[in-house]
């Protein structure tokens, strides 16, 4: 009897493995954003092709891709990646080069090369959204309007309370310098120097005791909601969704926001490259992209932007470009490693 059940179990295991080989693993950021992608990209794709998709969450960054790549166990197929990390993932070979000629034209007939905004067609990725890192605070946490600027975010005397920040050097270093009075256009230049880095850490030190660290964007609105922090760094769409869908008493602050693109990439070395590209072709068509307006992210195709109502456009990062800075993927490709290390040492101090 034991024999039989063992055989059965092994048969089950093998069967499961056989079935699973067909699954396409798509990894993205979960939460409200993940829900929008599921609704407008994953589900329609599954309905159209009958493909089996495993939709995974991750917290961003390149570490997981790197571990898969260096150990040779490629487990993801498609990954949604911030351009701030893309340059590094691309130059280190974690994600594959994508031939843009395979992309379909926009629904209005514009060829893909013209339809996408220029930054959206990267050597290793196809544009998904324009989004931004902003900060938000609870309306009830502060009298007279609360913090209005990045400098206020770092001002614990005028605005006491916990600040939620994502645990990584990216954006936090930029903000520290902005709050310390550095002009937006000089931020990355300064961060490339030892003095600039020390200055940023020194500024972060002033709020270190009040920081609540989180690992994933989806935690940001949760922290703000359950009182774990009075102001949080967040992807703009998360806060927008909480305000729109749940009437959360949050206020967004656009000052000093760091805007960036998100792209779909294909893991280098996956055995499902074809299926992965097929999914990307579908997900970056005009209509699926325009669905990202649900979470206030701007689509990267002009033909999709044209579909958006005016009141939605006002909430997109594109309406606030002059208040923010553009995330510098090349800078972070070069300095991500060493600043990551310094950042972690700083955390442990």
């Amino acid at each position: 009897m034991k024999h039989r059940s063992l055989l059965l179990a092994s048969a089950l295991a093998l069967g499961a493995q056989g079935a699973a080989a067909q699954d396409l693993t798509v990894t993205s950021f979960g939460g409200a954003y993940g829900a929008a992608q599921k609704e407008h990209m994953i589900d329609p794709y599954v309905a159209e092709t009958g493909a089996n998709i495993l939709f995974e969450d991750y917290g961003g960054g390149v570490a997981e891709m790197k571990a898969q790549s260096e150990s040779g166990n490629i487990q993801w197929d498609v990954v949604d990646i911030e351009v701030i990390d893309l340059e590094r993932a691309c130059s280190e070979g974690y994600v594959a080069v994508i031939d843009h000629s395979i992309l379909p034209p926009g629904d209005d007939g514009t060829p893909a090369e013209e339809d996408f905004i220029p930054e959206a067609l990267h050597e290793c990725g196809v544009g998904n959204i324009v989004w931004s890192v902003i900060f938000a605070h609870r309306e009830d946490a502060f009298a007279d309007g609360g913090p209005q600027t990045i400098a206020d975010f770092f001002d614990t005397e005028a605005f006491p309370g916990k600040r939620g920040l994502r645990k990584r050097p990216q954006v936090n270093m930029e903000w520290a310098l902005l709050a310390d009075g550095v002009a937006p256009e000089e931020v990355y230049e300064l961060l490339a120097t030892e003095e600039g880095q020390q200055r940023a850490f020194a500024k972060l030190d002033t709020i270190k005791d009040d920081i609540v660290w989180f690992d994933s964007w989806s935690q940001a609105p949760v922290l703000l909601n359950d009182g774990g922090a009075q102001m949080v760094q967040s992807a703009n769409g998360r806060i927008y969704a909480a305000i729109e869908d749940e009437d959360a008493p949050f206020t967004m602050v656009w000052d000093g926001h760091v805007y960036d693109l998100d792209v779909w990439s294909v893991m280098n070395g996956t055995d499902q490259e074809e299926a992965a590209l097929d999914f990307i072709k579908f997900a970056t068509r005009t209509v699926p992209l325009s669905g990202m307006q649900d979470v206030a992210y701007g689509p990267t195709r002009r033909s999709a932007q044209a579909l958006l109502p005016e009141e939605v456009k006002a909430n997109l990062p594109t309406a606030h470009l002059e208040e923010g800075i553009k995330a510098d993927g090349i800078f972070w490709a070069d300095y991500g490693e060493s600043l990551g290390e310094k950042f972690n040492e700083w955390l442990l101090q």
């Binding site: 130059s91 030892e194 490709a333 070069d334 490693e337 060493s338 310094k342």
Partner: peptide, 13 residues
């Protein structure tokens, strides 16, 4: 040699 990563990467680029 901490800090070398960016030197190697930008040079490679």
């Amino acid at each position: 040699l901490p800090g070398t990563s960016s030197v190697v990467k930008s040079t490679a680029r």
